[in-house]
Amino acid sequence: MSKPRLALFDFACCEGCQLQIVNMEEEILDLISVVHPVQWREAMSEQSEEYDIAVIEGSITRPEDEERLRRIRERSRFLIALGSCAATGGINNLKNQLNLKEAQRIVYGDAADMPHLDTDSTKSVDEVVLVDFKVLGCPIDQQEFAYIVRCLVLGKTPEIPTYPICVECKLQENTCRYEHGEICLGPITRAGCGARCPSQATWCFGCRGLSDEPNVYAAREVMDKYRKTPSDLEERMALFCSKPRYDHE
């Protein structure tokens, strides 16, 4: 069996998720023993339009990007959304809460009307094309990415946690951030990162998006107990949890 060919494409994002692949260090050698990278602009000058697996990084924010994405989908057997920007829209969703013309004026001033500065609202990749697998997180977890790639090559659906971060946080024996008077999104955010932020003594800001059937009602209810308000919770959820869905099947 020949190795599946993998191509990586970046859209609107910080490219930190591809960097996590570079950060696999020696393990990249293992990765390229399983898949054959044929296009990866940030790391390679080689380019091929023949590939089996397309990895998409970043959110879709312009009509021409949607076109490009559809062409990629047509050419690929599998499509992976890499990182929160691609999988859920990520931090770029904040843009959707703005009046775009107004926002462009804030950033570009009087030049905002120049046509090349146009941008649409943020879309996650699955709002444009069919996505086979999502690698969540801002940035992604290298081990989870590696696991998903191995599953894909093996022909198995990866088992990504459907439960909230609290599970992993308890396993790390962290003190609950609510005991420190912080609003932590751990109880409604999908696990899989090993409770990275609470383990560094700060709140989870929900970069992996909401868990399956998150109890947002309970999260709002609980604010009173910790002397916060539901709008405090919503402010924090606006960063990464404004799109309440993720279907991993």
């Binding site: 859209f11 609107a12 910080c14 930190g16 970043g58 924010t61 312009r62 990007d65 990520g90 931090i91 770029n92 904040l94 843009k95 703005l98 775009l100 107004e102 926002a103 462009q104 804030i106 950033v107 570009y108 500065l117 146009d118 941008t119 801002c138 800001f205 402010e235 924090r236 606006a238 960063l239």
Partner: peptide, 24 residues
């Protein structure tokens, strides 16, 4: 490059979340 409008996205956000947003 696709414009991302960070200077507008941080407006109205809390100082506590600022670092989390702009590191992106």
């Amino acid at each position: 490059e696709a414009p991302r409008l960070f200077e507008a996205m941080v407006l109205g956000r809390s100082w506590e979340d600022m670092q989390t947003i702009v590191s992106r």
